[in-house]
């Protein structure tokens, strides 16, 4: 959905669902996601519908992702680090209501 205008000055590697991708120092995790072929970050707990980053400034909480093993982090506010492991979040297992 997005592409970089220039090669990064300081390239580093992060892992999106296990696949290595190139990021630039200073990128937020959500930016790296939006430059990947699939901009989706998670499925919602309520309906399982897909979401992608929306506001990119920490307001909407739609860009929640698992980052270095921690669930539900705001990907638009977390700067990338070399070797960072980023995962799209599936819909959480709902409560059994019987």
């Amino acid at each position: 959905m997005f592409k970089r205008r220039h090669e990064p000055n300081h390239a580093l590697t992060v892992y999106l669902d296990g696949d290595p991708i190139t990021a630039a120092a200073g990128d937020m995790v959500a930016a790296v996601l939006l430059a990947s072929p699939d901009p989706r970050c998670r499925a919602t707990p309520v309906s399982g519908s897909p979401r992608a980053p929306y506001c990119m400034m920490g307001v909407c909480f739609d860009c929640l992702m698992e980052i270095d093993g921690v669930l539900n982090r705001q990907a638009c506010l977390v700067p990338v680090a070399d070797g960072m492991r980023i995962r799209r979040q599936p819909r959480p297992e709902p409560m059994a209501l019987t």
Partner: peptide, 9 residues
Amino acid sequence: GLLKASGML
């Protein structure tokens, strides 16, 4: 913001 922070279009 993506353009400013990451030079993305």
